[in-house]
Computed example of a mutant assay.
Amino acid sequence: MANLPNGYMTDLQRPMPPPPPPGPAVPPASPGDRPPSAPGPGGGGGGGGGFFSSLSNAVKQTTAAAAATFSEQVGGGGAGGGARGRLLLVIDEPGTDWVKLFKGRKIHGDIEVRVEQAEFSELSLVAQANGTFSVAIEGLRGGTKVVRTLRPDFVLVRQHAYSTARGGDHRGLVIGLQYAGVPALNSLHAIYNFCDKPWVFAQLVRLRRKLGADEFPLIDQTFYPNHKQMVSA
Protein backbone atom coordinates (compact mmCIF):
# COMPACT_ATOMS: atom_id res chain seq x y z
CA MET A 1 0.00 0.00 0.00
CA ALA A 2 2.94 2.34 0.67
CA ASN A 3 3.98 2.03 -2.98
CA LEU A 4 0.59 3.05 -4.43
CA PRO A 5 0.57 6.38 -6.29
CA ASN A 6 -0.68 9.45 -4.46
CA GLY A 7 -4.45 9.69 -4.57
CA TYR A 8 -4.86 6.13 -5.83
CA MET A 9 -7.35 4.97 -3.19
CA THR A 10 -9.09 8.35 -3.30
CA ASP A 11 -9.62 7.97 -7.02
CA LEU A 12 -11.15 4.52 -6.56
CA GLN A 13 -13.63 5.84 -3.98
CA ARG A 14 -14.54 8.97 -5.93
CA PRO A 15 -18.11 8.75 -7.39
CA MET A 16 -18.53 9.06 -11.12
CA PRO A 17 -19.44 12.66 -12.09
CA PRO A 18 -22.92 13.24 -13.62
CA PRO A 19 -23.02 13.56 -17.42
CA PRO A 20 -22.83 17.18 -18.65
CA PRO A 21 -26.03 18.78 -19.96
CA PRO A 22 -26.44 18.74 -23.71
CA GLY A 23 -25.03 21.86 -25.32
CA PRO A 24 -25.25 23.42 -28.72
CA ALA A 25 -23.97 21.36 -31.58
CA VAL A 26 -20.35 22.10 -32.40
CA PRO A 27 -18.88 21.18 -35.76
CA PRO A 28 -16.15 18.55 -35.49
CA ALA A 29 -12.64 19.91 -35.50
CA SER A 30 -10.01 18.74 -37.90
CA PRO A 31 -7.40 16.24 -36.60
CA GLY A 32 -4.75 18.92 -36.42
CA ASP A 33 -6.94 21.17 -34.24
CA ARG A 34 -7.81 18.55 -31.59
CA PRO A 35 -6.23 19.26 -28.18
CA PRO A 36 -4.56 16.37 -26.35
CA SER A 37 -6.92 14.40 -24.12
CA ALA A 38 -6.80 15.22 -20.42
CA PRO A 39 -5.26 12.59 -18.17
CA GLY A 40 -7.54 10.46 -16.01
CA PRO A 41 -7.38 10.11 -12.21
CA GLY A 42 -4.41 7.75 -12.26
CA GLY A 43 -2.33 9.77 -14.70
CA GLY A 44 -3.53 8.04 -17.90
CA GLY A 45 -6.57 8.62 -20.08
CA GLY A 46 -10.02 9.25 -18.70
CA GLY A 47 -12.48 6.59 -17.53
CA GLY A 48 -11.14 3.05 -17.25
CA GLY A 49 -7.76 4.12 -18.66
CA GLY A 50 -7.03 6.10 -15.50
CA PHE A 51 -7.75 3.10 -13.28
CA PHE A 52 -5.46 0.78 -15.21
CA SER A 53 -2.79 3.46 -15.40
CA SER A 54 -2.85 3.79 -11.59
CA LEU A 55 -2.71 0.04 -11.18
CA SER A 56 0.18 -0.22 -13.62
CA ASN A 57 2.08 2.54 -11.80
CA ALA A 58 1.51 0.77 -8.47
CA VAL A 59 2.92 -2.49 -9.82
CA LYS A 60 5.90 -0.72 -11.37
CA GLN A 61 6.69 1.13 -8.12
CA THR A 62 6.37 -2.04 -6.03
CA THR A 63 8.67 -3.95 -8.40
CA ALA A 64 11.14 -1.09 -8.42
CA ALA A 65 11.20 -0.98 -4.61
CA ALA A 66 11.89 -4.72 -4.37
CA ALA A 67 14.59 -4.48 -7.03
CA ALA A 68 16.22 -1.57 -5.21
CA THR A 69 16.31 -3.53 -1.93
CA PHE A 70 17.80 -6.52 -3.69
CA SER A 71 20.34 -4.31 -5.46
CA GLU A 72 21.46 -2.69 -2.21
CA GLN A 73 21.91 -6.00 -0.43
CA VAL A 74 23.92 -7.78 -3.12
CA GLY A 75 25.48 -4.85 -4.92
CA GLY A 76 28.95 -5.39 -3.51
CA GLY A 77 31.30 -8.30 -3.97
CA GLY A 78 29.20 -11.30 -3.01
CA ALA A 79 30.36 -14.55 -1.46
CA GLY A 80 29.35 -16.90 -4.21
CA GLY A 81 28.41 -14.70 -7.17
CA GLY A 82 31.78 -13.82 -8.64
CA ALA A 83 31.97 -12.96 -12.32
CA ARG A 84 28.95 -15.17 -13.05
CA GLY A 85 26.58 -12.86 -11.18
CA ARG A 86 24.80 -12.93 -7.85
CA LEU A 87 23.14 -16.04 -6.48
CA LEU A 88 19.70 -15.72 -4.88
CA LEU A 89 18.34 -18.63 -2.84
CA VAL A 90 14.54 -18.65 -2.71
CA ILE A 91 13.01 -20.90 -0.04
CA ASP A 92 9.51 -21.67 -1.22
CA GLU A 93 7.16 -24.45 -2.21
CA PRO A 94 7.20 -25.46 -5.89
CA GLY A 95 3.93 -23.65 -6.65
CA THR A 96 5.85 -20.57 -7.86
CA ASP A 97 8.72 -20.86 -10.32
CA TRP A 98 11.12 -18.17 -9.09
CA VAL A 99 13.82 -19.24 -11.56
CA LYS A 100 11.48 -18.30 -14.40
CA LEU A 101 10.46 -15.02 -12.76
CA PHE A 102 14.08 -13.88 -12.43
CA LYS A 103 15.23 -15.15 -15.82
CA GLY A 104 17.22 -12.45 -17.61
CA ARG A 105 17.13 -10.05 -14.65
CA LYS A 106 20.24 -7.97 -13.96
CA ILE A 107 21.32 -5.50 -11.29
CA HIS A 108 23.75 -2.58 -11.57
CA GLY A 109 23.39 -2.79 -15.30
CA ASP A 110 25.32 -5.96 -16.09
CA ILE A 111 25.31 -8.24 -13.02
CA GLU A 112 23.14 -11.28 -13.65
CA VAL A 113 20.84 -12.67 -10.94
CA ARG A 114 20.93 -16.46 -10.76
CA VAL A 115 18.25 -18.22 -8.72
CA GLU A 116 18.21 -21.50 -6.83
CA GLN A 117 14.86 -22.56 -5.39
CA ALA A 118 14.26 -25.18 -2.72
CA GLU A 119 11.99 -26.02 0.19
CA PHE A 120 13.14 -26.01 3.80
CA SER A 121 12.92 -29.81 3.84
CA GLU A 122 15.49 -30.01 1.04
CA LEU A 123 18.09 -27.80 2.72
CA SER A 124 20.96 -28.37 5.11
CA LEU A 125 23.47 -25.78 6.28
CA VAL A 126 26.84 -25.50 7.99
CA ALA A 127 28.15 -22.12 9.21
CA GLN A 128 31.45 -21.21 10.87
CA ALA A 129 32.09 -18.34 13.26
CA ASN A 130 34.68 -16.90 10.84
CA GLY A 131 31.94 -16.24 8.27
CA THR A 132 32.36 -19.24 5.99
CA PHE A 133 29.27 -21.33 5.31
CA SER A 134 27.75 -23.69 2.79
CA VAL A 135 24.20 -24.64 1.93
CA ALA A 136 23.30 -28.04 0.49
CA ILE A 137 20.17 -28.79 -1.52
CA GLU A 138 19.11 -32.42 -1.60
CA GLY A 139 16.34 -33.31 -4.00
CA LEU A 140 15.14 -35.79 -6.57
CA ARG A 141 15.94 -35.18 -10.21
CA GLY A 142 14.51 -37.81 -12.55
CA GLY A 143 14.08 -40.26 -9.68
CA THR A 144 17.73 -39.90 -8.58
CA LYS A 145 18.84 -38.19 -5.38
CA VAL A 146 21.03 -35.20 -6.20
CA VAL A 147 22.95 -33.07 -3.70
CA ARG A 148 24.21 -29.62 -4.69
CA THR A 149 26.33 -27.30 -2.55
CA LEU A 150 26.17 -23.54 -2.95
CA ARG A 151 26.89 -20.24 -1.20
CA PRO A 152 24.06 -17.80 -1.83
CA ASP A 153 24.67 -14.05 -1.78
CA PHE A 154 21.09 -13.41 -0.78
CA VAL A 155 18.05 -15.30 0.46
CA LEU A 156 14.30 -14.82 0.08
CA VAL A 157 12.08 -16.84 2.43
CA ARG A 158 8.55 -17.47 1.16
CA GLN A 159 7.72 -20.59 3.20
CA HIS A 160 6.71 -20.98 6.83
CA ALA A 161 9.69 -21.98 8.94
CA TYR A 162 7.69 -23.75 11.64
CA SER A 163 4.62 -25.95 11.88
CA THR A 164 3.41 -28.63 14.26
CA ALA A 165 3.45 -31.21 11.48
CA ARG A 166 6.04 -33.93 11.63
CA GLY A 167 9.33 -32.58 10.29
CA GLY A 168 7.90 -29.07 10.09
CA ASP A 169 10.33 -27.37 12.48
CA HIS A 170 12.93 -25.55 10.36
CA ARG A 171 13.96 -22.91 12.87
CA GLY A 172 17.47 -24.34 12.92
CA LEU A 173 17.94 -23.35 9.27
CA VAL A 174 16.74 -19.81 9.98
CA ILE A 175 19.24 -19.60 12.84
CA GLY A 176 21.95 -20.97 10.55
CA LEU A 177 21.30 -18.33 7.90
CA GLN A 178 21.42 -15.64 10.58
CA TYR A 179 24.61 -17.17 12.00
CA ALA A 180 26.18 -17.13 8.54
CA GLY A 181 25.18 -13.49 8.01
CA VAL A 182 23.38 -14.15 4.73
CA PRO A 183 21.44 -11.01 3.70
CA ALA A 184 17.68 -11.58 3.46
CA LEU A 185 14.94 -9.57 1.78
CA ASN A 186 12.46 -10.36 4.56
CA SER A 187 14.16 -10.11 7.95
CA LEU A 188 15.34 -13.45 9.37
CA HIS A 189 14.76 -11.96 12.82
CA ALA A 190 11.08 -11.41 11.98
CA ILE A 191 10.76 -14.87 10.41
CA TYR A 192 12.12 -16.49 13.57
CA ASN A 193 9.83 -14.43 15.82
CA PHE A 194 6.77 -15.41 13.80
CA CYS A 195 7.50 -19.08 14.36
CA ASP A 196 5.93 -18.60 17.79
CA LYS A 197 2.49 -16.99 17.48
CA PRO A 198 1.98 -16.27 21.22
CA TRP A 199 5.32 -14.42 21.22
CA VAL A 200 4.07 -12.21 18.37
CA PHE A 201 0.76 -11.62 20.14
CA ALA A 202 2.69 -10.57 23.25
CA GLN A 203 4.29 -7.79 21.20
CA LEU A 204 0.84 -6.72 20.03
CA VAL A 205 -0.38 -6.62 23.64
CA ARG A 206 2.51 -4.35 24.49
CA LEU A 207 1.47 -1.98 21.70
CA ARG A 208 -2.12 -1.98 22.99
CA ARG A 209 -0.92 -1.01 26.45
CA LYS A 210 1.04 1.85 24.93
CA LEU A 211 -1.58 3.13 22.49
CA GLY A 212 -4.76 2.17 24.31
CA ALA A 213 -7.46 -0.39 23.52
CA ASP A 214 -9.48 2.11 21.48
CA GLU A 215 -6.56 2.95 19.19
CA PHE A 216 -5.18 -0.59 19.00
CA PRO A 217 -7.96 -3.15 19.61
CA LEU A 218 -7.10 -6.84 19.86
CA ILE A 219 -9.04 -10.09 20.10
CA ASP A 220 -9.24 -11.24 23.73
CA GLN A 221 -7.00 -14.21 24.44
CA THR A 222 -5.78 -16.16 27.46
CA PHE A 223 -2.31 -17.67 27.58
CA TYR A 224 -1.45 -20.94 29.35
CA PRO A 225 2.15 -22.20 29.43
CA ASN A 226 0.94 -25.78 28.92
CA HIS A 227 -2.24 -27.79 28.41
CA LYS A 228 -2.38 -29.02 32.01
CA GLN A 229 -2.86 -25.53 33.39
CA MET A 230 -5.50 -24.83 30.73
CA VAL A 231 -7.52 -27.91 31.78
CA SER A 232 -7.32 -27.05 35.48
CA ALA A 233 -8.38 -23.48 34.82
Rank of each mutant, 00 (worst) to 15 (best):
A64V: 00
G76V: 14
V115H: 01
G76Y: 08
S37R: 15
G78W: 02
Q117K: 04
Q73E: 00
A67W: 01
G104D: 00
F102L: 15
G80H: 01
A83R: 15
N130V: 01
R34F: 12
G76R: 11
F70E: 12
L125F: 13
L88A: 03
G76D: 12
A65R: 04
P31K: 00
A127S: 11
K60Y: 04
A64M: 05
T96A: 05
G85V: 06
G82W: 01
S54V: 06
A127C: 12
V99R: 12
V113Y: 00
S53I: 03
V115A: 00
A58L: 04
W98N: 09
G104H: 00
V59D: 07
S124N: 15
R34M: 10
G32C: 05
P35Y: 07
S53L: 14
V90G: 12
T63E: 13
K106Y: 06
P39E: 13
S121G: 14
G75L: 06
L101C: 06
H108Y: 15
G46L: 15
A68D: 07
V99K: 13
A118V: 02
Q128T: 11
P41S: 14
G78Y: 11
P41Q: 07
I107C: 01
P31S: 13
H108C: 11
D33A: 13
G78D: 00
K100N: 02
S121H: 08
F70P: 08
G32M: 12
A58I: 09
E112W: 06
Q128I: 13
